[in-house]
């Protein structure tokens, strides 16, 4: 009988404890007595937390952030639907924002007009915050910039057999393929994918791994975004044997992609949400991205890294974000060519 009681009370205690804990902790967090801005961020915490903190300190608005990958956050917002607690969605790429576009509200002109048209949503539902250029990285011990071809197309030449590294499951890579489809058409894009594939490229999970591999000489060239290199230069010194090359001929190999943010229609903090976007687009916010994440600012008059090619020097193609929306087409092309499962 003694045991009997003991087990009953332990079980009861545990259940009560669980319910109590569950009921107390989060309730304090989710019922906003004061104004609290809720951000879903598809961008990494170490990248954006400092600037979000700064916003909070400057404005006195409390902010809470949920971090995840852009696709997980987009899927979460879609499942939550009209009950989403999120006010702002800060995404790594336009694809994530496009996926939830029907739940985003049109932004005021005063926000949209701060950035050039190619860096914002054609429907006015989101605005670009920072820019990333697609580049070719090369190992400086094995190659000189002059050895590199004018166009990304030329890497299909068989002399690049076994020398290329790429990350076909990476979102930015797929955005570049989308740009190819827009600028070159389906057939030429397919030929490029098949051409690279027949050169037996090494496949990496992401851009960091590409730059690491090029630095180690595992491959000689790779196709990442521009800013990964600068983190390596900061951490390993300028002797790190990798440099960026912006393809001379321009075209899809030099496309500029943006991270962006939008406001949910269901947000009850529209005012704070707009202040947040304005803050990210302010010189303070933009300078943060330029000097901490080495991305391109989307407004004029910001100082960038000494080794970073000025945006004006890159022959990035004129391409509207609306054209970049067809991710499905890109994915089915990548599947058809057997490059992704």
């Amino acid at each position: 009988m003694h045991r009997n009681k003991w087990i009953y009370s332990l079980t009861g205690l545990l259940l009560v404890l669980t319910l109590l804990v569950g009921a107390c902790t989060p309730a304090a967090e989710t019922t906003p007595k004061e104004q609290t801005l809720t951000i879903y961020s598809g961008r990494g915490e170490s990248l954006v937390a400092p600037i979000i903190d700064q916003f909070s300190k400057t404005t006195g608005i409390k902010v809470q952030v949920r971090y995840g990958s852009t696709s997980e956050m987009a899927a979460t917002i879609l499942e939550e639907g009209r009950n989403s607690p999120a006010d702002v969605f800060f995404a790594q790429d336009p694809g994530g924002l496009g996926a939830v576009e029907s739940l985003l509200m049109p932004l005021p002109e005063s926000i949209l007009n701060q950035v050039p048209p190619k860096f914002r949503s054609p429907a006015g539902t989101w605005v670009g915050i920072s820019g990333r250029a697609r580049v070719v990285v090369y190992n400086t011990q094995k190659l000189k910039e002059a050895d590199l071809p004018d166009d990304i197309w030329d890497f299909t030449d068989s002399k690049w057999q076994g020398r290329i590294g790429w990350a076909p499951t990476n979102g930015s890579f797929q955005a570049m393929v989308t740009a190819m489809r827009v600028l070159w058409g389906e057939e030429k894009t397919r030929q490029w994918l098949k051409g690279i594939q027949s050169n037996n490229p090494k496949v990496y999970p992401g851009n960091t791994q590409i730059v690491t591999a090029v630095g180690a000489g595992e491959v000689e060239v790779g196709f990442p975004n521009h800013y990964y290199l600068y983190t390596f230069l900061r951490d390993k010194g300028e002797s790190f044997p990798v440099r960026n090359y912006y393809v001379r001929a321009g075209g899809p190999g030099a496309v500029i992609l943006v991270s962006g943010a939008g406001i949910l229609q269901t947000s009850k903090n529209q005012d704070a949400a707009q202040r947040f976007l304005n803050f990210l687009l302010s010189p303070v916010g933009q300078q943060y991205f330029a000097s901490q994440t080495f991305e391109y600012p989307v407004i004029e008059g910001i100082i960038t890294h000494r080794l970073l090619a000025p945006l004006a020097d890159i022959k990035s193609p004129e391409i509207s974000m609306a054209d970049m929306a067809d991710l499905k087409g890109t994915l089915s092309l990548l599947r058809e060519t057997g490059i992704v499962p």
């Binding site: 899927a75 879609l78 499951t169 979102g171 991710l327 992704v340």
Partner: peptide, 14 residues
């Protein structure tokens, strides 16, 4: 499982 993740990741198709 990887194919399922890719659906979420690349085409946002739940």
């Amino acid at each position: 499982t990887w194919a399922i993740y890719l659906q979420y990741q690349t085409s946002f198709d739940r």
